[in-house]
Simulated assay, not measured.
Amino acid sequence: MQLSEEDPQNWPPRIRCSDACDPPTLDTNNTRCLHRIHQALQHYRDLLGSDIFRDQPQPRLETTMDQLLELVQQKHGHHPRHPVAPSDHWSHQLLRHLALKRLRSFAAVMSRVFTHSATAS
C-alpha cells in the first residue's frame, strides 16, 4: 500500500471543484458530491481495517466511519469494499499518521459540505 503523492492511482479521494460540492450546485444536484464523499469514506474505512492499523486499531473511528457510510449509502447506494494491499511493517506508523492526517483534512471539508446542506434545507 502506498499513500504517496507521486502515483495518482494511490491518491486518497479528495473533494475537487469538479465534484460539484459548492453551495449553488448542492442546492440543485448533490449526486456527484455524495458519490465523492462516499468514495472517500469507503477509502478511509478500508484503511482503518487494513494491516497498518492492526497494531493500533481505532474501533471508535471505525464505528463512526461505518455510521457515516450508512448515512451516505442511504442517499447514494452501496459500493463494494476494496481491500488495501499489505505494506511493510516498518512503515505502518508513518502510514497510520499520514492516513489519519488526510482523514482529518477530508472530514473538515466534508463537514463544510454537510453544514451548508443542513442550513439550506
Rank of each mutant, 00 (worst) to 15 (best):
Y44T: 08
R14V: 11
H82N: 14
D66I: 07
L41N: 04
I15R: 02
N30L: 08
R45S: 12
Q74N: 03
Q58K: 12
G49Q: 13
D55S: 15
H79Q: 14
P57E: 12
D55W: 05
R54V: 08
D19F: 06
Q73T: 05
G77A: 11
T25H: 07
H38V: 00
M65S: 12
S50V: 10
S50K: 07
N30F: 10
D46N: 12
I37A: 09
D22R: 04
T63N: 13
R45A: 04
K75A: 12
L48M: 14
L69A: 03
Q58F: 00
F53I: 08
R16N: 07
D19W: 09
R81F: 11
T64Q: 11
T28N: 11
D66L: 13
Y44F: 15
D66W: 06
P59K: 13
N30Y: 13
N30T: 01
R81V: 08
H38P: 00
H79Y: 11
T28R: 14
N29D: 15
Q56E: 15
S18H: 06
P83Y: 15
H35E: 03
H76I: 00
S50Y: 11
H43T: 06
L47G: 03
R45Y: 09
L71E: 06
P80K: 15
H43L: 04
D46H: 05
D66R: 10
L41W: 00
T63L: 10
P59V: 14
S18Y: 03
C33W: 04
L61E: 06
M65K: 06
Q73L: 01
P57I: 09
L47R: 04
D51T: 11
C17V: 01
H43N: 12
P57Y: 09
R36D: 01
Q73R: 09
V84R: 15
H79I: 13
L48C: 12
H82K: 15
L47M: 13
T25E: 06
H43I: 03
Y44W: 14
G49P: 01
P57S: 12
V72I: 13
L61W: 04
Q74H: 07
R60L: 09
H82Q: 15
C33F: 05
D55N: 12
T64V: 04
A20K: 13
S18M: 06
D46M: 05
D51G: 14
T31Y: 00
D46A: 14
H82L: 14
P24C: 01
K75W: 04
P23Y: 03
L26P: 08
R45Q: 05
Q56M: 11
S18Q: 11
D55L: 13
P57V: 10
L47D: 00
P57K: 10
R54K: 10
V84F: 12
C17F: 07
Q74M: 08
Q58H: 09
P83I: 14
C33Y: 03
Q42Y: 02
A40D: 10
P80V: 10
L41Q: 06
R14D: 05
H78E: 03
D46F: 00
I52V: 13
R60C: 00
E62P: 00
T63D: 13
